[in-house]
Design a binder for these strands. Sequence first.
DNA 1: CGGAGTGCCTTA
DNA 2: TAAGGCACTCCG
Lengths: 203, 203
Amino acid sequence: MMSSVTIERKRVECNSLPKGWQREEIIRKSGISAGKMDVCYYSRTMRSDVSLVPPIRQTASIFKQPVTVIRNHEVGKVKHDAKHAAQDKPKQMFWEKRLERLRACHSSGEELEDIILPRSIRSIGPNVNEQTVLHSLATALHILSSPVTGQTSSKTEFNKNATAFINPDQPLMQSVLVSEDDIRRQEDRVNIARKKLQDALKS
Amino acid sequence: MMSSVTIERKRVECNSLPKGWQREEIIRKSGISAGKMDVCYYSRTMRSDVSLVPPIRQTASIFKQPVTVIRNHEVGKVKHDAKHAAQDKPKQMFWEKRLERLRACHSSGEELEDIILPRSIRSIGPNVNEQTVLHSLATALHILSSPVTGQTSSKTEFNKNATAFINPDQPLMQSVLVSEDDIRRQEDRVNIARKKLQDALKS
DNA sequence: CGGAGTGCCTTA
DNA sequence: TAAGGCACTCCG
């Protein structure tokens, strides 16, 4: 005699949604709605940003003056390499925007000028400006152990529904392709810089 | 400035349920379900039946033969008057039915005849027979310090949902009213008995 | 108090 | 009438 097992839950990659989304179907087992199906959609979970909690200016009764509290990692835990940190806590979407007010400065307190990004790096997403992309990109280079390539969705898709089309592992920049020409030009720049350094050391 | 205190727990007599039932409302204070309410219903707790644990016939390795173990009270505790016993342990509903198999007997071992109850005492509850009422009533007279009046719910209510409508302090009999006539008749019976006793003593 | 699982109202 | 969505119960 053959016996069959009714599958009650199945979770599969969903082709009618952007890459990374999964569709789960759950069959109701009992009650008057038995046999009906509930559907859940799951997006990719974001990596946790262990070392990216911004400093907070706060006043505590134990201090004589307001102080700036800096937490780099959980209290009481050994600090590990960020690239190998546990990735269980999800990260907020567009968390980069929390960093928008922060500016690098000299030890004298004088703020640095805005950094100009190469034209090949273009922002993507609602109100994502050049400095936000920079924060996003710098963080990705710091945290990711895989290649940093930017968002793969088209700008149209992304603007239509960023929440669905975002790839949370990648920075908020459009997909970047590095050509053979790019590599050659960069090599030229490095060679020129080395030459200048040699000349400076001679004199 | 005024300060208000949100009531988080309140426990009140519940009018939409039979007498004696209480309804407790507990407001959730935090989390995603903050503000939602959990409700508990409490029935009257039953008095504990300190001296009514039936004897058990059992075999233990320390005895040469099976023995009948009799526990009248908790081991290691002083035995108090049952009417003043601590009432913290709840009693099982319809516990009287556990006594149904027990019969009084003469010292010779011969069982006594069933006792016939007066017609004014009528049983109430599922499968509660005349002997069960007797056990129940005798226990109430033994334990209760307040008047023994029987169940106050109607027979219809009681049969519909005994668990909710039972008054656990009272025996499983319908409400009994003692009339002036009843008292007079009982006085007559006592007088006749006394007369017979006097006559017997004379001869 | 959260989450799984189901009831049931709304909508087209 | 069915599907979707929300509310609610129950249990750990």
